[in-house]
Deep mutational scan, measured.
Amino acid sequence: DDVELRDGDWRVELKDADEEILRAVEEAIKNGASEQELRELAERLIR
């Protein structure tokens, strides 16, 4: 699993992620995405 989400800690570690993925995830976090939404976003972007 390349995506690590810690309970109560919104730092997201994406291994080997490019800047576009990181920006998309950071934007989702700023917009108040839930953990499930972040997982789905990350899975779509990593593929």
Results as ranks from 00 to 15, higher is better:
D1Q: 13
D2R: 10
D2A: 12
D2I: 14
V3C: 14
V3E: 12
E4R: 01
E4Y: 07
L5Q: 06
L5V: 11
L5A: 04
L5D: 08
R6K: 10
D7K: 05
D7M: 05
G8Q: 08
G8H: 11
G8I: 15
G8K: 15
G8Y: 14
G8A: 11
G8W: 15
D9Q: 12
D9N: 12
D9L: 06
W10A: 02
W10H: 02
W10P: 02
R11G: 05
R11T: 04
V12P: 05
V12C: 04
V12L: 13
E13P: 08
E13F: 15
L14E: 01
L14K: 01
L14Y: 07
L14R: 01
K15I: 11
K15Y: 08
K15D: 05
D16K: 09
D16G: 12
D16A: 09
D16N: 11
D16Y: 15
D16T: 06
A17K: 05
A17V: 15
D18S: 00
D18K: 10
D18E: 07
D18T: 12
D18G: 14
D18M: 03
D18L: 09
E19M: 09
E19N: 07
E19T: 06
E19Q: 10
E20D: 10
E20W: 14
I21G: 01
I21L: 06
I21W: 05
I21Y: 03
I21K: 01
L22I: 11
L22G: 02
L22T: 07
L22M: 12
R23A: 12
R23F: 07
R23I: 05
R23S: 07
V25T: 01
V25G: 00
V25Y: 06
E26F: 10
E26W: 14
E26L: 14
E27V: 07
E27H: 07
E27Q: 09
E27K: 06
A28F: 05
A28P: 00
A28L: 06
A28S: 02
I29G: 08
I29N: 04
K30C: 12
K30W: 05
K30F: 09
K30R: 12
N31G: 08
N31D: 06
N31V: 02
N31S: 12
G32N: 05
G32F: 02
G32I: 01
G32P: 00
G32D: 01
G32L: 01
A33G: 02
S34G: 05
S34C: 02
S34P: 01
E35A: 09
E35D: 09
E35V: 09
Q36L: 08
Q36M: 14
E37H: 05
E37C: 10
L38F: 03
L38I: 13
L38K: 00
L38S: 03
L38C: 14
L38Q: 03
R39D: 02
R39T: 03
R39L: 08
E40G: 03
E40W: 03
E40H: 04
E40N: 05
L41Y: 02
A42Y: 15
A42V: 15
E43Q: 11
E43G: 05
E43Y: 08
E43F: 09
E43T: 08
R44S: 08
R44P: 00
R44V: 09
R44A: 12
R44E: 11
L45H: 02
I46Y: 06
I46R: 04
R47C: 15
